[in-house]
Write a protein that binds this DNA or RNA. Structure first.
Length: 226
DNA sequence: TGCTGATCATTG
DNA sequence: CAATGATCAGCA
């Protein structure tokens, strides 16, 4: 068994590839791919996701697009504990802080990214070294009406606050299923945003994240029959 | 102990 | 710097 040499040609092929990985440890997958497994992820936070990208044939990069543009599918690893509950929130995408007048949910990066997601849960409790963490069953998800409505509502509320110059007032407690949090290399990273009086301010870059209870519901929905 | 805010590595 | 992949870690 070896990593994919090219992107999958269909959603079915992608899901097949992902399901084959279920049961393997990250150490095994790294070995087979000829990659080094770090002892911990403190300085390798994106390692799991990049390993899975390698195995499934996604192009690494930093483009604000889906991982599989031809399929319209986004790939996301999801760390879970032994009882199958998410251990972390899930990063969605960078949040635009300028030039957002007239931007609609339909045009948003969030909607695009979440329109179809291949979720790959990984048993990743902190007491398990990365090499021993195991891949669980992948599943494909498209938001249903209610899920999309919930995402849309949070997005619209948060984006309205940003547009009104209230970005500094937004905390991770805003939003029912999705939150806005800092997203940067460190506290010195600054980007432009709209300020209170309508002028420009410098602020920390932000990203959208899915709250844990939302992704937990996706897991339950996907494995309800198991 | 969970969550929020902070942080790490890499690429374009 | 922007954006990707995320997890870390202090504090309530």
């Amino acid at each position: 068994m070896h990593p994919a040499s090219h992107a999958p040609h269909s959603v079915e092929e992608l899901l097949e590839r992902a399901r084959i990985l279920a049961g393997y440890s990250l150490g095994e997958l790294a070995d087979m791919a000829g990659l080094h497994t770090p002892a911990d992820l403190r300085r390798h936070k994106g390692w799991s996701g990049q390993l899975l990208e390698t195995w499934l044939g996604a192009q690494a990069g930093s483009k604000p697009e889906q991982d599989f543009p031809e399929l319209g599918v986004e790939l996301k690893t999801l760390p879970i504990d032994s009882s199958g509950k998410p251990l972390e929130t899930t990063y969605v995408c960078y949040a635009p802080l300028t030039g957002i007048a007239g931007l609609s949910w339909e045009q948003s990066n969030v909607k695009n990214k979440l329109s179809c997601v291949c979720w790959v849960p990984i048993e990743a409790s902190r007491d398990i070294p990365p090499a021993q963490r195991r891949v669980a069953n992948a599943f494909l998800w498209r938001p249903d009406k209610q899920q999309e409505q919930a995402l849309r509502q949070d997005w619209e509320e948060i984006m309205e606050m940003i547009a009104l110059g209230q970005v500094e007032c937004i905390t991770a407690r805003h939003g029912e299923v999705m939150q806005l949090r800092p997203k940067a290399a460190d506290g010195s990273a600054l980007t432009q945003a709209v300020g209170k009086d309508g002028g420009w301010i410098q602020t920390r870059p932000r990203g959208f994240y899915l709250k844990k209870h939302f992704t937990q519901a996706l897991l339950q929905q996907a494995f309800a029959d198991i």
